[in-house]
Design a protein around this nucleic acid. Structure first.
Length: 305
DNA sequence: GTCCAGGTGAGTG
DNA sequence: CACTCACATGGA
């Protein structure tokens, strides 16, 4: 990835990443994650590895950016240029956020030209990154997602964090933003189901406690499944051993939490697409190693039309 | 009040 | 295997 660093109002600025490579709005708003929130000024605030970060994507005039590290790259910029501004340090950006945003993966993909819908979806969804989210958080989040809508999923997860997470905060321009970390499996494994009353989990409460016990006891090893050498379908089958985890949730966890990019979760929206645009059958294998990315393009696109 | 939401497990034939 | 049905909850 070809970018350089600068400074804008005292914050780290990353120059040279355009929206076709990384679109923060699409990436955080496409339904893969539930704990990134957009502030009034367009800044995204979220948590990675239990630490809060702000990210903002905008066009800034090259003359307003200081301390540009690479003059060779700088010479290629004139006028207003696409910039990511972040509270992260350069070290945190390189060691944590680049990986989290999956900027080190090549997303170039060819879709058969006669596959009209997938091509439209790709155009619409360009800039979405498949985040490398925490496996445990992703598992619980998608257990909660079943038979639920996205605003409700978000509020339920937030309540769960508020109740059983650790308080964290970040201070930016004199203002303090507070949040809570995602509860660990150790914490949740020790709870009674009734401890989850009032969080809006509904019948999914026992699924979560069961999953926490499975992971905490070592019966389910998410770190092992997270290894790139484990095929997606194996990870998915393993996850489906959990009570309350079926193919849809397992495939979402494999894709969004274990980074198995070939997984293609089929929910009501994707099924609707298959019925409407593919005469009822679609083999995700035609999209190859990045089928999950195509799935996410489709999910984003169908909700936008 | 009714309908729906990034489904799943249990029961039945 | 394919087909039903109940399941908690809250926003539209």
């Amino acid at each position: 990835m070809n970018y350089t660093y600068g400074e804008y109002n005292g914050f780290l600025a990353i120059l040279g990443i355009n929206k076709s490579t990384l679109d923060l709005d699409k990436t955080f708003d496409c339904g893969q994650c539930f704990r990134w929130n957009k502030l009034l000024d367009g800044t995204w605030l979220g948590t990675v590895n239990n630490k809060q970060y702000m990210l903002k994507q905008k066009e800034i005039h090259i003359d307003d950016i200081t301390n540009i590290t690479d003059n060779k790259i700088k010479s290629g910029f004139t006028g207003y240029i696409p910039v990511i501004i972040t509270t992260a340090t350069k070290h945190e950006w390189e060691e944590t956020l680049v990986h989290y945003l999956d900027l080190d993966t090549d997303y170039s993909i060819t879709i058969p030209s006669d596959d009209i819908f997938a091509n439209k979806a790709k155009n619409a969804g360009e800039g979405i990154r498949i985040l490398r989210q925490d496996p445990w958080e992703t598992l619980v989040s998608f257990i909660i997602s079943q038979r639920n809508n996205i605003p409700k999923i978000k509020s339920t997860i937030q309540k769960l964090c508020n109740a059983f997470g650790e308080k964290i905060s970040i201070e930016v321009n004199g203002k303090v933003y507070t949040d809570y970390t995602f509860p660990t499996h150790q914490t949740l494994s020790k709870l009674d189901i009734s401890d989850l009353d009032g969080l809006g989990l509904g019948y999914r409460d026992s699924y979560i406690i069961n999953a926490a016990i499975a992971v905490n006891s070592g019966r389910l090893d998410l770190n092992k499944l997270n290894d790139a050498s484990v095929p997606g379908y194996i990870a998915s089958e393993t996850l489906q051993g959990l009570y309350g985890v079926g193919p849809k949730v397992a495939n979402c966890v494999a894709l969004f939490g274990l980074h198995k990019l070939d997984m293609f979760p089929i929910d009501v929206w994707i099924q609707r697409i298959i019925d409407t645009y593919y005469n009822g059958t679609l083999n995700p294998g035609v999209y190859g190693e990045l089928a999950g990315l195509v799935q996410q393009y489709m999910f984003y696109y169908i909700k936008s039309i």
